[in-house]
């Protein structure tokens, strides 16, 4: 528990530090002040990719080992991934509204494919809720997690594959096409959001374990009305 609070504390400090760098970066010549949103938008999108990638990894590991903790980790990671995807979409839409004049542009392949990835994982969570048996739930969601992970590279490379309004990757192996302050604020926030992800993952995994244990115990307990014996009608009475 101490480690989780430490992670949360570090994440908070890190995010505050990242924001301070975002405020220091120069306003963009074209996008103006709105360019600062990149320090949140890009890390949340990367964290969503990480979370969904790990959902697939934990799911496949569950298929191989059948350890319930791995299923809880996969589910928790998917939930956090959905949260980060929502944040990435909202910040992207705010940015789009200021920069392009519209919040949602159908010509933007990254935006549309991210929204589709969001729906795939909403479906993942719905599938989990619809499956009452723990083993069946773990198996089905592990397979969907593996199929859903196909969307991650698709979203990432969508800006290269399809004609789009969205800019291509700003950070590439050959360097970053942005001012140093922007890069620092983005990388600091990436680290801070990763710590936040780890803290949330640990908390949510525990909650899922407790929830599953509780449900297993209560499903074995007799129902409230089990002690009541219905009267039997005698023939001719």
């Amino acid at each position: 528990m101490k480690l989780r609070f430490a992670l949360l504390g570090l994440a908070t400090v890190g995010i505050a530090y990242g924001f301070s760098w975002a405020l220091r970066m120069p306003a963009d010549a074209v996008q103006g002040e709105s360019a600062r949103i990149i320090s949140v938008h890009v890390p949340t999108a990367w964290l969503a990719f990480l979370a969904f990638g790990l959902t697939a990894v934990f799911g496949l590991a569950w298929l191989a080992t059948k350890r319930s903790k791995l299923d809880h980790l996969a589910a928790a990671s998917a939930e956090i991934g959905v949260l980060f995807t929502a944040l990435a979409l909202v910040t992207g839409m705010i940015w789009g509204k200021v920069t392009w004049g519209i919040a949602w542009d159908w010509g933007d392949a990254r935006l549309a494919s991210t929204a589709m990835m969001f729906f795939v994982y909403l479906g993942y969570l719905a599938l989990r809720r619809a499956t009452p048996d723990a083993t069946q739930r773990a198996r089905r969601s592990a397979i969907l997690g593996a199929v859903g992970a196909l969307q991650v590279p698709l979203v990432y490379f969508s800006v290269n594959i399809w004609r789009t309004l969205h800019q291509t990757q700003s950070v590439r192996p050959d360097g970053a096409s942005m001012p140093t302050e922007t890069l620092i604020s983005m990388l600091v926030n990436l680290g801070a959001f990763t710590l936040l992800y780890l803290a949330l993952l640990a908390w949510r995994t525990d909650q899922l374990r407790i929830e599953e244990t509780y449900l297993a115990e209560t499903s074995l307990a007799p129902n409230a009305g089990a002690a009541v014996i219905p009267p039997k009608l005698q023939p001719g009475s």
């Binding site: 549309a112 494919s113 729906f119 795939v120 909403l122 479906g123 199929v147 859903g148 969307q151």
Partner: peptide, 8 residues
């Protein structure tokens, strides 16, 4: 709900 986004 599962098929629609996967078929994009």
């Amino acid at each position: 709900l599962l098929v629609a986004p996967l078929s994009i």
